[in-house]
Amino acid sequence: MSTQAKLPPSSIPLFTTVSSFREWRRKVYDERKSVGFVATMGALHEGHLSLVRKSLAENDLTVMSIFVNPAQFAPHEDLATYPRTLPGDLELLTAESMMVVNPSASEPITRKASAVFLPTVSEMYPSGISQDTSAQKGAFVEVKGYGHQMEGQSRPTFFRGVATIVTKLFNAIEVSGALSDPFSRSHGGARQPTNAYFGQKDIQQALLLRRMCKDLLLSHPDPSHVHIVPTARDPTNGLALSSRNAYLTSDGKKVAPTLKEALTAAESAWNEGLTKRECVLRAEQVIDAKRTQARSEGLEVEMRLDYVQLNDSGTFEVVEDQSRRLGDGSDPVILSGALWVDKTRLIDNIILGDQSRILA
């Protein structure tokens, strides 16, 4: 375990190197315990904690990573100013616990987070890293054909960075039992699987990672153990929780729920049987009306729609019309959008169709 002086005090074991974490992870194998993994960039909020609770409920041990990944940020994006709140993050995580029934014990047990992986940039990118993809060196992961739609249209290098860092984290979090476990060698690797948890707010990212695990033949986690958890929202206005919400001004916070309202209007249009274009138009009308209202109320805020779109959840291709009806075994449709509120980019989505085919 790292003893770096810069790390804040924590009752949860903290690891800053792959080697130190793997030493801890091998001991877990010896105990035959399942591990749930939550990957984050820190600045924790209720959305992250909902993933932690899901993991606590379903696994013996829960591991979280906190790493602001440079490869997810284009040169013009907010890497330098992205919120970094490690002391507060650890306080929030330490406060989380869940009582579960253990069939092998006479009394319920209380589960808490088991470890936090806090790697440095040099640890995760031994060959170095640049936000300029043309200057990058070393190994990277790209899921071809599934990263240029939806969010990929506005952030063309984003999913390459996501796929790369999550593959690295999976490799760091999961250790081959054959390294230290004779039982696994002789019994075909009989150990509990790793479960990974991601939020619906970043739906394209989560589905792309599921596909990546399938295409790369990953066993820990395999695609069925990549769980997508419903979006956590502000209970007062429905705003999807995000670390970047901290950038919003007081006036910005008043109009931030507009994106969810717009998507809800488009969902209603879809359920009425209207065309894709009419659904998008309904959403745009909600945003236009809110922009006019904000001006009339004297709010000092600018709203700019990036996109509203309907995409197939299997291919991410645009759904052009209502010719493919839902409920016939076809993949659900993702209704998603992105809205700039001043300099803060908000994203959100609604799943049209059988959500159980996607969500945990």
Rank of each mutant, 00 (worst) to 15 (best):
M1T: 06
S2W: 01
K6T: 12
P8G: 06
P13Y: 08
F15Y: 11
T16D: 03
W24Y: 11
D30N: 07
R32V: 02
S34I: 11
F37R: 00
V38G: 05
H48Y: 04
H48L: 04
L56C: 05
L61Y: 10
T62H: 08
S65M: 03
V68Q: 07
P70E: 11
Q72W: 14
R84H: 03
R84Y: 03
G88S: 12
L92I: 03
T94C: 10
S97M: 00
M99N: 05
M99Q: 14
N102V: 11
S106N: 10
E107N: 13
T110Y: 06
K112E: 13
K112H: 09
A115S: 05
S122A: 14
M124V: 13
M124E: 05
M124W: 10
M124H: 11
P126A: 02
G128Y: 13
S130E: 14
S134A: 15
Q136D: 09
F140I: 02
F140C: 02
E142Y: 09
V143N: 08
V143R: 05
K144S: 13
H148E: 14
Q149N: 15
M150A: 12
G152K: 06
T157Q: 12
V166R: 05
V166A: 03
N171M: 03
I173G: 01
S180K: 12
P182N: 06
S186W: 13
H187L: 07
G188K: 14
P193F: 13
N195P: 04
F198W: 07
F198D: 11
K201A: 00
Q204K: 07
Q205H: 15
A206V: 05
R211F: 08
L217F: 12
P221A: 04
D222F: 10
A232Y: 12
T236V: 13
N237H: 12
L241W: 10
S242Y: 12
S243Q: 08
A246N: 03
A246G: 05
L248C: 05
L248F: 05
T249G: 06
D251N: 10
G252H: 08
K253S: 08
K254W: 08
V255W: 02
L259H: 09
K260Y: 14
E261R: 14
T264C: 01
A265G: 02
W270T: 00
N271W: 01
C279V: 11
L281V: 11
R291S: 11
T292H: 08
T292S: 07
A294N: 09
S296G: 04
S296L: 12
L299A: 06
E302N: 07
E302T: 13
L305T: 06
L305H: 01
L310T: 12
S313F: 14
T315V: 04
T315E: 05
S323E: 02
R324I: 13
D328N: 08
S330C: 09
D331Q: 14
D331E: 15
T344N: 01
T344M: 08
R345F: 11
L346H: 07
D348P: 15
N349G: 10
I350G: 06
I351R: 04
S356N: 01
R357E: 06
R357A: 10
